[in-house]
Nucleic acid binder design. Structure first.
Length: 891
RNA sequence: GCCUGGGUGGUGGAACCGGUAGACACAAGGGACUUAAAAUCCCUUGGUGCUUAGCACCGUGCGGGUUCGAUUCCCGCCCCAGGCACCA
């Protein structure tokens, strides 16, 4: 259906070209000339803008700067509707701010490293570089066809050595400062992509790119120490009022700060202790056993020589083999194994069996958890399963006085036997969740401590501090903070990325590449491997390198950097993309940074937006820039969906921007993207909606060309004359519309309502012209209205507006035209509409002089005949008057 | 489970520091122009009812509350979308 249907239904402006050969349509040549034909005018203005370089900017201290940026695209082949929407929103803001007089930087470039290039090249027998640069050329031409106002002189692709050389320099500087380091650890490995992934790139245990299950693998990897800035990253989320709340909350959750205590539990054997992080120190008296992660370094020691040693090690091995998604997604049944060792509860002195448990994560806290079954549901279930003691030590505030019940805990497996000393186990007290006096699940809230020695009777919050302080005197505790955020693993075992500038030497170990040897250029003459693995480890000219320290033959690092490294600083490079004496020209970066408005998809809420915030802090501390945060204001636009789903090839609901532009022109596509919904919401693509946008532009076009002579000879309205009726109303509407459009764009980026207001104004102009008032002021007022329509529409639909404006005889470009101001005088009406309610229900409407007093309004409404029916025979108890708006009569 | 949004006509959406619910558009129906079609223009369009030039009642997920007045504020639910998820 698609292309053919398209050219038939939407391609109206093709008719003129076809008509020459057909010979029967162009009977009315004059009428055809008046038709809106976007194809020719859009090309004309794009060429004009391009040749004149009108969007190129420099630093100008006299003007206020405004740096507007949209997330740059990955050159995947062709732009999709999501790009069109994102960049259209950005372009409107850029053009609007320019007209308001700001010195606007609006650049574009390419996030050009990454795996799709490799996969596509393997498939096509091509090279990632060729694939990438071909795509860039094509996509650049697509962006130009949409008329976006970029300063193309600043364009760059991140796969260019002139870009990534500076990234390599940053790596070296970060290495010097300990912000880049190498360590061996369990990392996320995607077997399909043959590479390691950062935590942020694992979604529900699966690879963010290919959706394969991610496994844990122990490897030597390079990390960026994002945790060095964890507190600043968190605190600044409270100082970014220009960001959407939900993005900030997502980042806060991702950082995952929790305050608590670090506690030490001495081993019964006397050989050391187990460290534990807990936020619930107040429940310490109820800690009856210990759970540790299978990867915990003490596991081997704890079970050594015990009867269950081999069984424990088998269990550990089994858990390690399980997939990350299964293990983390709470799918696996909670299982544990007693190691055979005990540690001692430092406040009760009681023995606590140490279990290896599959749900304990080595990566959070210390990899060991004190288990308090009465006050943690997971521990409760675990204790029931393995017959471990459950001791209640917190009661709900306000509950009845305590009564003791005999315990019934069985601890056979742990070696604890019941007896007179057996603690109260599994028994509920007043106010606890439970049935017939038996605890059915853990009581997890804060409350009042019981059976907790000297701390009994304290409130949880105070007890947390008090118990920690008491233990601190014995060297067994300290107050501490834990974060969920972990360092950013940046090594990728892939070819198409920026090489990490490191050489390994048998004698000297890790040797950074000297700065003067940068860039370490990614070799182009490689054979890609079928399985997707990197060819670099088998490419001798690359990996063979002399050790910079001793000169002996070393081996170059063959991993490349995560592509998110490139996008973590590109916004600063736009300020000085031609600078070749360093990564960033301080003066120019100082002028432009930070980005005043950043626009992009919500999918980067954590990934790119968190990495960039980290990078800017690191660059600041290394002396490259002076800002703390990269993006002052953030707008996250919604997805483009069709038929209820995100556009995707598999759903078969993709709409190609090229075909849309061919059929309707760029202005129509832009207009529809802006009009169909506010930017932060999802946009539902509708063929008919696009038709409607085209219809509106045609209407605007005809408004000018069908009245061209009258409009031109009218000259602008200069004020002074007294206007009446329709004409006065039109002038008022013109200025109301200017105000509404200005505020809708400036205050909240609600282009949909701005466009609706312009449509209303156009409708009114037509209406006034239809009524043909023989008033000498008709054409001057209409002309003022038409000019306003053209100027305030121009950020959204720039091509048609330039054309219409030049048709009216203007010579300067619209983008150099100041944004119009509304005339407060013109907004004033002589008469206003006031609604009358009785008991809050609308009963009548009256038109009154604008200067009527509240008392007059009240009198008029009480005399209103419609109102009389409703108040007749009733007593008027009260009359509420909202000045110039509404009267409510209460009877 | 926790955290964020969000539930308004046939559809996209508007109004929301409480004050005319449904702007603007799409779709649908009717009409004008035309040999015809396209394009364009005009009218109707939340629901129900009636004594049908009009009027009344109901209506913003559900149930309460505050108020002269609630789509908007408060309390309690339901549903949808997104994020995090054994975090100790």
């Amino acid at each position: 259906m698609f292309p053919r249907e398209m050219s038939r239904r939407g391609g109206r402006f093709h008719e003129k070209e076809f008509s020459g050969s057909d010979g029967h349509i162009d009977t009315d040549e004059k009428y055809m000339e008046q038709r809106y034909n976007p194809r020719s005018i859009e090309k004309k203005w794009q060429q004009f803008w391009d040749e004149a370089g009108v969007f190129e900017v420099g630093e100008d201290e006299k003007r206020e700067k405004y740096y507007l940026l949209e997330m740059f695209p990955y050159p995947s082949g062709r732009i999709h509707m999501g790009h069109v929407r994102n960049y259209t929103i950005g372009d409107v803001v850029a053009r609007f701010m320019r007209m308001l007089g700001y010195n606007v930087l609006h650049p574009m470039g390419w996030d050009a490293f990454g795996m799709p290039a490799e996969n596509a090249a393997i498939k096509a027998g091509s090279h990632p570089a060729k694939w990438t640069y071909d795509n860039i050329d094509y996509m650049r031409s697509q962006l130009k066809q949409l008329g976006f106002s970029y300063d193309w002189s600043r364009e760059f692709a991140t796969c260019d050595p002139s870009y990534y050389r500076w990234e390599q320099l940053f790596f070296l500087k970060m290495y010097e400062r300990g912000l880049a380091y190498r360590k061996s650890s369990y990392v996320n490995w995607c077997p399909k992509c043959q590479t390691v992934l950062a935590n942020e790139q694992v979604e529900a245990g699966a690879c963010w790119r290919c959706d394969s299950a991610v496994v844990q693998k122990e490897m030597e990897q390079w990390f960026f120490k994002i945790t060095h800035y964890v507190e600043e990253l968190l605190q600044n989320t409270f100082k970014l009022p220009g960001w959407p709340e939900r993005v900030l909350v997502m980042q806060q959750n991702w950082i995952g700060k929790s305050t608590g205590s670090m506690l030490r539990f001495p081993l019964e054997s006397g050989r050391g202790d187990i460290g534990v992080f807990t936020t619930r120190t107040d429940t310490l008296f109820g800690a009856t056993f210990m759970s540790i992660a299978p990867e915990h370094p003490m596991v081997a020691d704890l079970c050594r020589g015990k009867p269950q040693e081999s069984a424990v090690l088998d269990f550990v091995e089994k858990v390690k083999q399980s997939k990350r998604n299964e293990r983390e997604a709470d799918l696996l049944e909670k299982e544990g194994f007693f190691t055979g060792s005990y540690c001692i509860n430092p406040v009760t002195g009681k023995k606590m069996p140490v279990y290896v448990a599959n749900f304990v994560l080595m990566a959070y806290g210390t990899g060991a958890v004190m288990a308090v079954p009465a006050h943690d549901q997971r521990d409760f279930e675990f204790a029931q399963k393995y017959g471990l003691p459950i001791e209640v030590v917190i009661k709900p505030a306000g509950a009845c006085p305590l009564r003791a019940y005999p315990g019934a805990g069985s601890s056979a497996e742990a070696g604890l036997t019941g007896g007179p000393e057996t603690p109260l186990a599994g028994v509920a007290r007043d106010g606890f969740p439970g049935d017939k006096g038996v605890l059915t699940h853990a009581f997890e809230e804060d409350g009042i401590l019981v059976d907790s020695g000297e701390f009994s009777g304290m409130e949880s919050a105070a007890a947390r501090i008090a118990i920690t302080e008491a233990l601190a005197k014995r060297g067994l505790a300290e107050l501490t903070v834990q974060y969920r955020l972990r360092d950013w693993g940046i090594s990728r075992q892939r070819y198409w990325g920026a090489p990490i500038p490191i050489i390994y030497c048998d004698r000297c170990g890790v040797a950074p590449v000297p700065e003067q040897d940068l860039p370490v250029v990614l070799p182009i003459d490689v054979e890609l491997l079928e399985n997707g693995g990197s060819p670099l480890p088998v490419h001798k000219p690359f990996y063979s390198a002399a050790c910079p320290k001793c000169g002996a033959e070393g081996r170059r690092e063959t991993d490349t950097m995560d592509t998110f490294v490139e996008s973590s600083w590109y916004f600063a490079r736009y300020a000085c993309s031609d600078f070749d004496r360093g990564p960033l020209d301080r003066a120019r970066v100082g002028y432009w940074m930070p980005v005043d408005q950043y626009i992009g998809g919500i999918e980067h809420a954590v990934l790119h937006l968190l990495y960039s915030r980290f990078f800017v802090k690191a660059l600041r501390d290394m002396g490259y820039m002076d800002v703390d945060e990269p993006f002052l204001n953030l707008l996250t636009q919604g997805m483009v969906i069709k038929d209820g789903f995100k556009m995707s090839k598999s759903k078969g609901n993709v709409v190609d921007p090229d075909e849309m532009i061919q059929a309707y022109g760029a202005d129509t596509v832009r207009l529809f993207c802006l009009f169909a919904s506010p930017p932060e919401k999802d946009l539902d693509w509708s063929e008919q909606g696009v038709e409607g946008s085209f219809r509106f532009l045609s209407r605007m076009w005809r408004l000018v060309f069908e009245n061209l002579e009258a409009l031109k000879s009218a000259g602008p309205y200069r004020g002074g004359s007294f206007l009446t009726g329709d004409i006065a109303q039109l002038r008022r509407k013109t200025h109301q519309t200017i105000r509404k459009v200005t505020e809708d764009i400036r205050e909240r980026f609600h282009f949909n309502t701005a466009i609706a207001a312009i449509m209303e104004l156009v409708n009114l102009i037509y209406q006034v012209l239809d009524s043909r008032p023989s008033d000498p002021m008709l054409w001057p007022v209409v002309r003022e209205a038409v000019e306003a329509v053209i100027v305030i529409s121009s950020p959204m639909v720039p091509h048609i507006c330039e054309e219409l404006r030049s048709a009216l005889g203007f010579e300067e470009l619209l983008l150099n035209t100041p944004w119009p101001k509304w005339d407060d005088q013109a907004l004033k009406a002589e008469e206003i509409l006031v609604v009358i309610q009785v008991n809050g229900k609308l009963r009548s409407k009256i038109t009154v002089p604008a200067d009527a007093t509240d008392k007059e309004l009240e009198d008029i409404s009480l005399r209103d005949p419609r109102i009389a029916d409703f108040i007749e025979g009733k007593q008027v108890r009260k009359v509420v008057v909202v000045p110039k708006k509404l009267i409510n009569i209460v009877v």
